[in-house]
Design a protein around this nucleic acid. Sequence first.
RNA 1: GCGCUCUUAGCUCAGUUGGUAGAGCAGCGCUUUUACACAGCGAAGGUCGGGGGUUCGAAUCCCUCAGGGCGCACCA
Length: 744
Amino acid sequence: MNLSTSGQIPEKLLKPYDPVTEEPGIYTKWEQSGYFTPENMIKDGLTAPDAESFSIVLPPPNVTGVLHMGHAMMITVEDILIRYKRMRGFRTLWLPGTDHAAIATQSKVEKEIQKKEGKSRYDLGRDELLRRVNEFAQDSHDTIVNQMKVMGASCDWSREAFTLDEVRTKAVRTVFKKMYDDGLIYRGHKIVNWDPKGQTTISDDEIVYEARKATLYTFKYSKDFPIAISTTRPETKVGDVAVAVHPSDERYAQYVGKEYDIVFCGTPIHIKVIADDAVEKDFGTGALGVTPAHSVIDWEIADRHDLPRPQVINEYAKMTVGDERLLGKKVLEARDVIVNYLKEEGLIEKEEVIDQNVATAERTGGIIEPLPKLQWFIDVNKPFTLEHSDIDTIASGSQTTLKEIMRATVGTGQINIIPDYFTKTYFHWIDNLRDWCISRQIWYGHRVPVWYKGDEIYTGIEAPEGEGWAQDEDTLDTWFSSGMWTFSTLGWPEQTEDFKIYHPTSVLETGYDILFPWVARMILMTGYNLGTIPFKDVFLHGLVRDAQGKKMSKSLGNAMDPLEIAAKYGADAGRMALIIGTAPGTDSKISEDKIKGQKHFANKIWNITRFVLSNYSDESAGASLTADDQTLLDQWHETATKITADIDNYRLHIAAEEIYQYIWTTFADKILEESKPLLASEDAAVKQSRQRLLLTLLSETITVLHPFMPFVTETLWDMLPRPTTSFGQAPTNLLMTQPWPIKS
RNA sequence: GCGCUCUUAGCUCAGUUGGUAGAGCAGCGCUUUUACACAGCGAAGGUCGGGGGUUCGAAUCCCUCAGGGCGCACCA
């Protein structure tokens, strides 16, 4: 809707800005243009064919329901970067997708079925449960895509991926086989984190520690046993095989090496006294009852001392040994039984209440029961040969480890984490990293690509030929597939054009809370499979909290739905409110007041446009600027240059505030006010110069604002006469495809 | 226990490489034939958590103390 006659302004501009009626149509226009797809930009001459690529792969939201404000933050930041780079002339790809999120999705669906129908997954069976989960996942997916569109996400939907689809399945199986052949994936009988509620193993990163009070009991196994031990879990003591003391502890030195046979609460146990460095002299009595099967540290002590590992608790957290007092009892009941026994026998020396962190499962809330199980693991310390390497400190063909890859890529600065203090946190995590348990006893996810027939074992992309092969029942940790997200989404293992052009990706933008479970795993997977980095920059945003600083959650009732915000204030206002005042990596608070303020800002620009257009005439188009007007234009370009530098350096919060301030306090409050007499001037040169200046400033400021507030700026752009900027024009009517006002 | 981080105007927070402090909201006064009341103009408001150090100069760098938040841990 270009203007051809002076002073004529569109009807809708006479009323206040209404984002709700404008935004949906704008998104449709963008989508129909096809310009979210970089190849279409090139085809229409909007991006140079040899332009440098800029790519972001969307951290795939879990298909567990709806997007929350954290997602809104992620989408806003990424869309700002993408729209900016697109306008800067890069071959810009933002690739969207969703994550099947295995355990999170299955447990969510299981909970609903349990609640509504009173049935467990075993009542339904594998096929029926998967049918239900898939149905739920599809609904979630549709909701998520709709939410993203409402928020204005300019991603290339033609390339959308899913962590559990066919292409990604091939990538997963290819990687699994390669790691298996290299000996990095192994099957081992080891102590694992068992979730009795979810009936599955989980990795160390899926544990949430809850601070609780616990009673620490100090007692002896029997009257004539020489050493007292302390524990918060007396019920496990029927599984003890040793008492460990520190090698330098003189109090117990005389007992080391001796062995005792005891009947403990009706169960015969054989205890050997050993010395081990893992024991702390100052904790409790300085002597540790060793229960190899039900404690990680004890399992490791048993390794060093070649001790037996009797299992006394099963997958349902019930006792598997003892007489009628214990057998079949749940651990908490068994604890009472043992404590009563100790009291009756007069064996307790001390009871004290201590603070303790109880390990619980992230998704089900179940209390973790350490158990020995036969599971699949990734060995993070085993040396292997990296055939091809682009990693700075690791030569092609040299020996390395997965841990070393994770260290080297970040340590050399090849991968740059923003804010940089998270680099320390990252290294701290690697230092404490153990082998990664990747098999899960749930049904939703990538089935472990291993087949068994008698003693034969086969691993591959497809099931083996011939009769009698049975596939492993377990599925893979969801992070196994999302770890390869930057390249699986680009079609790997096929050597696709996309893969060659867009990988490594430019930026990985996500919340700092998944630095370990995801970002580190992506670095591991990419370094191992491709000998390169998955992304150059890691840009971490903080958590979004409510106005009181509380974490948003459905149960607290303080969660904000991005759709409701869009419906009330406009997506632009929500985006701007999320960005302004929010430093990278820092938690932020969002309130309705803050969003409302940005709605006012959108309206302000709307009103500025009304003023500029109603005072404009076409004969000003070629007018030369007066010295004063040229100065104002130059000053704006200085501001725009600074904003550009801030975006380039991920200071989006500053850039957003600068454009806000410029438009409101400089452009509207000062320049517009001072223009009133000039626009009424008898001197045509002065008047036309000012008219041209105002239209130029308006055009350029909404161009710079566009990545932040894409909807209102696109709506206004459509009303402006052209050409109106000092930096050239794209041959389309879409602001989204216009060149950025600052060149370098 | 190890590590990270925060403490700046009443509230919520910015402050890139050190150059005697900024925004939004709230609040105060004024303004309604004004592009915009989803507004404008004006005023007020901070010894930048305490202490010490480096420096010509510190909100910014170093040390220390206090309080909050978070992460990790083999938490018996």
